[in-house]
Design a protein around this nucleic acid. Structure first.
Lengths: 121, 121
DNA sequence: ATCAGATATACTGTCAACCATATATCTACC
DNA sequence: GGTAGATATATGGTTGACAGTATATCTGAT
């Protein structure tokens, strides 16, 4: 049901906010993609994603080695509105613009096969 | 210019969130009205309003004994969108619904003259 | 079964936020 | 000038959040 205080508490941390903005704009992303895009060590990303998951803001899905996260599809509409407004209103600004640019430079992104060759570990 | 982290940090506290929702729905309100509506002691209200003011989220205006606060008119549109979405999406829920109802029961609200007689101290 | 890659959790120290009470400021009025 | 009402700030104490490092888990392949 998503209490507003839970939502805002989740959005208050820079790492979590950057992850969420990236997910709003890019859809599903795995931990390693988020860590690469933000330039942040994996345990830190993971810890913050756990809080987002516990808060009901994101949903996770295991795919082989990787765990993919996305904005939870069952959020109430006012919460979705807030996430989208935040992403759109700040997409051109630091650090969000850089995160997106850096993600684009990442090679061998899981789930995104280069051509038809399967990307193995 | 309103950094998103500043906004969400401000929205993260229950007292501040209730004040903001009330201001979104009712317009300008003074400290005593907010304190009455929330059932919260004055120094607490004042402290949180100071943070909202310093964050650029609200604007204050002195009128005689009273200081009136309102949502800052120069907020970027994405921030306004967030405030309105929060207020609309939660207006029917606790504790926001009660705050509004309690405000309506307040007698001698400053600025709101009962009839045409001026309301003095 | 073992090993490596990907992700999650635990532990410790530090710092910021909150509350409650008390006190200070500022305005209007006498 | 002095007083009262309305609002603001200061202080002390407590709690909760975050960072960094180390370690555990889980999956897939050899």
């Amino acid at each position: 049901m998503m209490e507003p205080l839970v939502l805002f508490r989740a959005l208050m941390d820079e790492t979590r906010l950057r992850c969420l903005v990236l997910m709003v704009n890019e859809g599903e992303l795995c931990v390693c993609e988020l860590g690469y895009a933000l330039g942040v060590v994996q345990p830190k990303i993971s810890r913050h994603l756990a809080l987002l998951r516990q808060s009901g803001l994101v949903q996770d899905r295991r795919v082989g080695h990787w765990v993919h996260y996305r904005i939870h599809p069952d959020l109430p509409s006012w919460a979705t509105t807030i996430l989208k407004a935040t992403a759109e209103g700040n997409l051109a600004m630091e650090p969000f613009s850089d995160d997106q640019a850096r993600l684009r430079t990442m090679a061998d992104r899981p789930g995104r096969c280069a051509g038809f060759a399967e990307v193995t570990t």
